[in-house]
Structures are given as structure tokens and as C-alpha cells.
């Protein structure tokens, strides 16, 4: 087997080992790269930034643990931003298995800013029927959530006393690992003109660009890079910021592998012709 053959047939175990090292070394060595926030992330940040204190922001947890590395840092950074600006935070979700992740982040950041449950924030939980929930939220929130996740009537929570439908929600933040973001745009934005910011995994984010360009969403935070951008904007470096060197190294590794694979492929093809 000559060099070209070797290049075209690298053992997958070697590739796996390189990927593992490419992820582990930058994290263990605590490397950090400065990022220049993308325009769409800055837009999202500025929309939150210009809200007056006391405005209500509704978070929708539409992901689960599989997408946690990308979306959880995004959520923590955005919650930090909201609580720092004294905004009121409501949380709900369409992915029941991911909701506790949202709750963990909410409690953690609320504690940091000494916020009180029911006064500054509330956790509404999950209701089945994605589209129906979104439409009914536009008519009457109490029709969908008459109690919070603990079973406390929403009317007894000061944070929800004046929240009846989308008119009382300044911005809806959907954190998406699937197609729920499309439904938010179709039902909450198109029907009720609700202002929406979407955060999504890097795989889902390209699907959401048309909404951003059409002005149907006012900000888009895509993947770990988007989360790192937001962490940098709110100046709370977290897991996304620390994950950037690993992601950069893996991207470079993949490009190197593609180049090597193609070199081997063309050299072998050339050899075959002879």
C-alpha cells in the first residue's frame, strides 16, 4: 500500500482518536478564543437590551439533553441578560423531557440575581398539542396554563397577574432543536405578530434564516458559536465560550481529513488510469 492508498483509507479508529483528542485537549488546557459576535446574535442581544425593566420575556424550551451542549449555554446567557435587566421571565416548553433543563437553568440564574419565584419569574411547564397551545396562548394564557408547574393558580402569581396573551409578552425566546421554531413563527408571529428570537442548534439554524431575513424573527442564535457570541455580549463566559477552541479544532480536523481524502482519491484515480 503506497502513501496515496493510505491517505484514501485512513482507519476510522484513528479518526475517532483524533476527534477525541481534538475535543479533550482544548477543554483540559482551558484554551479560549475571542469571538466577534455574528450580526444575527447581536440583533437578538439588542432586542433584549432595549426592553424596559419589568417587560415579560417568555422562554420556550424546545430541546432535550441531546442538544443541551449547544442550547443550555444559550439559555443561561439569555436568562442572565434578562434578570440583570430586571425583566420578568416566564418559561414553558414543548419538549417535556427537556423542560427540567430549563428549570435547572432558571433556578440557577434567578438565585444568582436574588429573584423571587412568582414575583420575578415563573415556570409554567408543559402542555401537549404544540400548535393548539401556541394559538390559544394568543387568545388567553389561562386557557392553556391555569396553574404553574407546581399547581399554583397563575392568578395568585404576581408575575402573571397582568399577562393574558401575546400582547403582554414583550419577546418570545424559542430554543429549538427541531421544527417547533417554525410553528412559533407560523402561529405566534404570523397570526399574533409576536416578536420572536430563536436560538437553535447548528443543524436547525439554517432552516430559520428565511424567517430572519423576512423580519419574522428579530434575532437568531445558531449553535455553539451563537451561544459563545451571546456569552461574550453579556460578558458571562461560559461553556460555549470555552467550547469554541474545541469546535475550531474539530472543524479544522474535518477540513484536513477532507483534503487528505481527496488527495488520496485523485492520486488513486490517476494511478488507475495509468
Amino acid at each position: 500500500m503506497n502513501l496515496w492508498d493510505r491517505l484514501a483509507t485512513i482507519d476510522r479508529r484513528i479518526i475517532y482518536l483524533l476527534v477525541a483528542l481534538g475535543v479533550i485537549i482544548p477543554i483540559v488546557a482551558k484554551l479560549s478564543f475571542r469571538v466577534t459576535p455574528l450580526r444575527e446574535v447581536r440583533q437578538a442581544y439588542e432586542e433584549i437590551e432595549k426592553l424596559p425593566p419589568g417587560s415579560v420575556v417568555l422562554f420556550s424550551i424546545d430541546y432535550d439533553a441531546a442538544s443541551m451542549p449547544e442550547l443550555q449555554p444559550m439559555l443561561v446567557a439569555m436568562l442572565d441578560h434578562c434578570f440583570r435587566k430586571n425583566l420578568k421571565v416566564l418559561m414553558m416548553g414543548h419538549w417535556p423531557l427537556g423542560l427540567p433543563l430549563g428549570q435547572i437553568a432558571l433556578e440557577q440564574v434567578a438565585q444568582k440575581y436574588h429573584k423571587k419565584y412568582g414575583v420575578d419569574y415563573a415556570f409554567l411547564g408543559f402542555r401537549p398539542g404544540v400548535a393548539a397551545v401556541m394559538i390559544n396562548l394568543g387568545k388567553d394564557l389561562r386557557q392553556v396554563f391555569n396553574t404553574d408547574y407546581r399547581g399554583t393558580p397563575v392568578d395568585s402569581l404576581p408575575v402573571l397577574r397582568n399577562v393574558h396573551n401575546y400582547n403582554d409578552i414583550a419577546i418570545l425566546v424559542g430554543l429549538e432543536a427541531g421544527a417547533t421554531g417554525d410553528a412559533w413563527v407560523q402561529f405566534a408571529q404570523a397570526r399574533y405578530n409576536q416578536k420572536i428570537i430563536l436560538g437553535a442548534t447548528a443543524v436547525v439554524a439554517p432552516d430559520l434564516y428565511p424567517y430572519l431575513q423576512a423580519g419574522q424573527i428579530v434575532g437568531l442564535i445558531g449553535g455553539l458559536r451563537g451561544a459563545a457570541d451571546y456569552e461574550q455580549l453579556v460578558q458571562v463566559p461560559g461553556p460555549a465560550f470555552l467550547g469554541m477552541p474545541a469546535q475550531t479544532i474539530i472543524h479544522i480536523l474535518v477540513v484536513v481529513l477532507i483534503i487528505l481524502g481527496n488527495l488520496g482519491y485523485f492520486a488513486r484515480r490517476q494511478g488507475g488510469r495509468r
Binding site: 485512513i10 476510522r12 479518526i15 475517532y16 483524533l18 476527534v19 477525541a20 475535543v23 432535550d64 439533553a65 441531546a66 442538544s67 443541551m68 451542549p69 423531557l97 433543563l101 474539530i250 480536523l253 474535518v254 481529513l257 477532507i258 487528505l260 481524502g261
Partner: peptide
């Protein structure tokens, strides 16, 4: 959470190998 995250993390290895 660790089980689900581990399942998804395996994609990083498969994607690198598949891209190559």
C-alpha cells in the same frame, strides 16, 4: 441527561469519519 447527551455526542465521531 448523560445517556442522551452521550448518544448525541457520538455524532461528532461519525460526522468526521463520514465527511472524510
Amino acid at each position: 441527561v448523560p445517556l442522551q447527551a452521550t448518544m448525541f455526542s457520538l455524532l461528532a465521531f461519525f460526522i468526521a469519519s463520514a465527511a472524510y
